[in-house]
């Protein structure tokens, strides 16, 4: 079992979101070594982890689980260009996506289809996307099962999109600076 990294700045979170993150992390600790991004500066106080760190971790053959429950309310549906660029990039880099419930899962699946992240190869292996997009209702045990199975996607299928989305996100961020 490889190291699992939960993407999310939960040490900057409060209330429910911090609770979810802690509960899930401690559950996962029971069966796998959970490593938190070492470069604290990259993530502290941000809604999303920095793409550079994210990419480094993903290239390091680690599975990333994107927990959209940790995002600020409204962040998921924000259609502004900069938010969308970062959100798309996060989705591109995540091996698994964990969301609040069935409604949010439907929303994310629609987004993944439009982004081109659901390929015939991926769909053929997992026609319900059960190991790719999970809901919190299913609990950590469902996630554990998914993490034990093969990775939902392969780099070669995702690389062109990742380069495009990454370049776009960096351009927008550069422009804003």
């Amino acid at each position: 079992m490889r190291v699992v990294l939960f993407v999310g700045p939960w040490w900057g979170l409060e209330g429910d979101r911090a609770g979810w993150a802690k509960a899930l992390t401690s559950e996962l600790m029971a069966y796998a070594q959970v490593e938190i991004g070492r470069d604290g500066k990259d993530v502290l106080g941000k809604v999303v982890i920095s793409p550079a760190l994210n990419l480094r971790l993903a290239l390091g053959a680690r599975r990333t689980v994107l927990d959209t429950r940790l995002w600020e309310p409204g962040w998921l549906t924000d259609a502004s260009r900069d938010r969308r660029a970062w959100r798309d990039l996060q989705l591109c880099l995540a091996h698994h996506v964990l969301c609040r419930g069935p409604g949010e899962r439907d929303y994310i699946i629609g987004a993944l289809f439009a982004l081109g992240l659901i390929t015939p190869q991926l769909y053929r292996r997992d026609p319900l996307l059960a190991s790719y997009v999970l809901t919190a209702e299913e609990g950590p045990s469902a996630l554990q099962g998914s993490l034990r199975g093969p990775s939902p996607w392969q780099w070669r299928h995702r690389l062109p999109l990742l380069l495009r989305k990454g370049a776009l996100a960096l351009l927008i961020s550069g422009h804003q600076r």
Binding site: L76, T77, A79, R81, R84, R87, D88, P102, G103, E104, D106, Y107, I108, I109, G110, A111, L112, F113, A114, L115
Partner: peptide, 29 residues
Amino acid sequence: QLALADMVMCSNERQRQSYIGALASMGLR
């Protein structure tokens, strides 16, 4: 088709959520 539409019709709430998600990822509301 989603990009061109002024209104999208679908036939259940599951479909609706997924089309809203697809539109959002295309930067459309």
